[in-house]
Simulated assay, not measured.
Amino acid sequence: MEKLLVAILGNRNSGKSHTWNTLFGATVRTGKEERRLYFNNYEYVNVFLVSGSPEERQKYVGDLIADTDPRIVLCSTQYKDDVKTTYEYFLEKSYFIFVHWLNPGYWDGDDSLFDSLGLTNWLLSKNSMVGIRSGKISASSRVNEMKEFIYGWAKARNLIINEQG
């Protein structure tokens, strides 16, 4: 069974939670169950959201997801050494990883940051895609890009639910 992780990577206060809030059109937090991500008025897909990064919370992502086995996970990840533990969890569970790195993040300096962790190369050597987006500009363009990617991925796997029948 194919699975998808959509991750937002960034420093603390870079705009990760703001991205999820924009995607859902409301303030959202990590839940215990899947929730609906609507693409329009009647089409949606079920996703599991980990809003606060496991690294900031000092929790193992597997404990946050618990006993669920979601096909699509949306997860905040913090740019620090132990973030690889979070990505390795998903890789071990055969997720394809789609990452938006907020670089620079909302509260970072004006210049893009050098990848001192070598995370980009490490991720790209795995089953993943990485894009760098500015956290200083409106979240709408990156959210639309994520939404289109999730829709296409889910549509190809017959995961889109249509409320109109």
Rank of each mutant, 00 (worst) to 15 (best):
M146E: 06
N11C: 10
Y44Q: 11
E43W: 01
L74M: 06
Y42S: 14
P104S: 08
E33D: 13
D115E: 09
D115N: 10
C75V: 07
V6A: 13
G25V: 15
P54S: 09
R29V: 15
S53Q: 06
T68M: 13
K80Q: 14
E163W: 02
K136C: 13
T19Q: 03
E145P: 04
P54L: 09
V83A: 14
V83Q: 11
I8M: 12
K155C: 10
K147C: 06
I97E: 00
G135F: 03
E163A: 09
G109K: 14
F96P: 01
A156G: 07
Y60C: 06
R12A: 14
N21W: 12
L23F: 07
L113S: 10
Y95I: 01
N41M: 11
D115C: 08
F149N: 02
F39H: 04
S76L: 06
G52M: 13
L117P: 12
W122A: 10
L159V: 05
F114Y: 15
T85E: 13
E56F: 10
V143C: 05
E92G: 08
L119D: 03
G52D: 11
Y38A: 08
S112H: 09
E88L: 11
M1L: 14
T86E: 00
F149H: 08
E163N: 12
I97M: 09
L4W: 06
L49I: 06
G62K: 09
V45T: 11
I97Q: 05
S53E: 03
A26H: 13
E92L: 09
N127W: 04
G52C: 11
G131T: 13
K136N: 11
N127F: 03
T85H: 12
K147E: 02
D63R: 10
R36K: 15
V6C: 15
Y42H: 13
V83K: 05
N11I: 12
F90H: 00
A7N: 02
Y95M: 04
T85D: 13
I132K: 10
M129E: 13
R57P: 01
S140R: 10
Y89H: 06
K155G: 08
R35A: 11
G15A: 14
L64F: 07
Y89D: 01
I97P: 02
V143Y: 04
L102I: 07
L124W: 05
L49G: 02
Y95V: 03
I132E: 15
A156Y: 05
S94C: 05
F48S: 02
L91G: 02
N13K: 15
I161L: 08
G109H: 10
I65Y: 00
A154H: 02
A154P: 01
V130N: 03
F96Q: 05
T77P: 00
A154W: 03
